[in-house]
Design a protein around this nucleic acid. Structure first.
Length: 420
RNA sequence: GUGGGCGUAGCUCAGUUGGUUAGAGCGUCGGUUUGUGGUACCGAAGGUCGGGGGUUCGAGACCCCUCGUCCACCCCA
């Protein structure tokens, strides 16, 4: 048993998975950059108050925060998500709106780990601040759709809803609260507790016994102001115009309190587990103001890396990037030749690798095979004395002797031929 | 935080109703006479059975505690 292992809910992303993570982010970068979103990096921890603005009724804030007092007496917390940090950044620096940014990186929530749920988990996401144009909502949603498609995912369903403006939302919550109070005997003890903290969340219950009560609950749509209803209608029109399929789900309330108007969530139907939400987001028109900035509307989404990658596995798409070497240098004369040749290949831009420790030729050949190299360059005592190297194709086994000085050029030419 | 399953070599797992030096496959390393891989064969290294306590003549196997992990609730990406 090793002395230490990863702390609960955290894990090492080992090769080759880490490479896949990286290309996941690169793919996201490519998609959102085309839409004018620029990269932003915000701190991994901030003043606790920044995150408390997410809402005092959300578990993310009340139960799951990694907060601590630092050596300077500041009460800080590891970020549970990045939207609040981005909004704080906007309030702090006052960039010119519309401000469209994207991010990636780890977030932290203290909860029990499960399939697709970890205490340290990575997300990619975008935030667009400074416009309440419903067609911006559409653009943002379309980016996520585009990204999922580029990954190769086909079984991702888009759910959308509107929570209305804060006044609408308040009236709805009141009505919902009354409704559930009237049916309190049909609710589980857990839901009764939830009802006191955040009636909206009762709609999310997965407990079989109360599905009927939940289904009969009043819908948000009846509480939307004309303005909010019109906004939502335009969002739907925009989605239709882009031929983006969606399901209006009036039970979709989402967990962070700051959401208003448009909210959406992407569910993977390929995932069997409890965590099927691979991404989600919505409007948060009051958040920047809450953080001391000017009244600024905003919308964004976050996509979970782990879950989305699990969905990719389930659909057998987005394979790991290749790590094949171009050439593997085998040296049975002590290793100095391999050292130099590898260096030359790398300088020339070719992926080259070798074995270490003076292993037998057969062992080195095995290593060459495992490296996936297209060519093996062999230097034994015979070759060295003649100033040549044997260049062997690992594909068809053909080999020929090439002057040592010309090996890199030769193999480079051959690889160029193969690649084109 | 609540409930349940699990925790044996790097990985995936076997380990009869508790009984001598804990096994397999994969992987790793080495070899199968003449310097060359992907198949086959042979061999080797590598666990004291998550940790602690207890029951017993004797425990990987039974009991308790603890840690970890997985799943569900919850929460959310």
């Amino acid at each position: 048993m090793p002395s230490f292992q990863t702390t609960p809910g955290t894990r090492d992303i080992l090769p080759p998975d880490a490479a896949r993570w990286r290309s996941f982010v690169e793919e996201f970068d490519a998609v959102v950059s085309l839409a004018g979103f620029q990269h932003i990096v915000v701190p991994m921890f901030e003043d606790l108050g920044v995150f408390q603005r997410l809402g005092d009724a959300t578990d993310v804030v009340t139960k799951e925060m990694y907060d601590f007092v630092d050596k300077g007496g500041r009460h800080v917390a590891l970020r549970p998500e990045q939207t609040a940090g981005v909004c704080r950044s906007f309030a702090q620096h006052r960039p010119l709106p519309p401000w469209k940014v994207w991010y990636s990186g780890p977030n932290f929530r203290y909860e029990r780990a499960q399939h697709g749920r970890y205490r340290q988990f990575d997300q990619v996401g975008v935030e667009a601040l400074g416009s309440d144009d419903p067609l911006l909502d559409v653009e943002v949603i379309a980016l996520a759709v585009e990204f999922f498609q580029n990954l190769g995912l086909r079984n991702v369903v888009l759910n959308i809803n509107s929570l209305g403006d804060s006044g609408d939302r308040a009236r709805y919550v009141e009505a919902l609260s009354q409704y559930f109070q009237g049916h309190i005997s049909e609710l589980s003890p857990e839901s009764v507790a939830t009802l006191e903290r955040n009636p909206l969340r009762v709609l999310d219950s997965k407990r079989e016994s109360e599905q009927a009560v939940v289904a009969q609950a009043p819908s948000i749509s009846g509480f939307l102001s004309d303005e909010a209803a019109s906004h939502f209608a335009q969002v739907k029109q925009g989605l239709d115009a882009l031929d983006i399929a969606y399901v209006v789900n009036e039970r979709l309330v989402r967990g962070l309190d700051y959401y208003c108007r448009t909210t959406f969530e992407f569910q993977s139907t390929a995932l069997e587990s409890a965590q099927t939400a691979v991404g989600g987001g919505g409007r948060y028109d009051g958040l920047v103001e809450d953080l001391g900035g000017p009244a600024t509307p905003g919308i964004g989404f976050a996509i979970g890396l782990d879950r989305t990658l699990l969905a990719c596995d389930a659909e057998q798409v987005f394979p790991h990037p290749s790590t094949k070497a171009d050439v593997f240098v085998i040296d049975t004369t002590g290793g100095m030749q391999a050292l130099q040749l590898c260096q030359q290949f790398r300088t020339a831009g070719f992926a080259s690798d070798r074995a270490y420790g003076g292993r037998a030729m057969k062992a080195q050949m095995k290593a060459a095979d495992k490296s996936g190299a297209t060519y093996a360059v062999i230097i034994g005592t015979d070759e060295l004395s003649q100033g040549v190297a044997t260049v062997k194709s690992m594909v068809d086994g053909q080999q020929e002797e090439i002057l040592l000085d010309a090996v890199v050029q030769h193999v480079a030419a051959q690889l160029g031929k193969v690649n084109s």
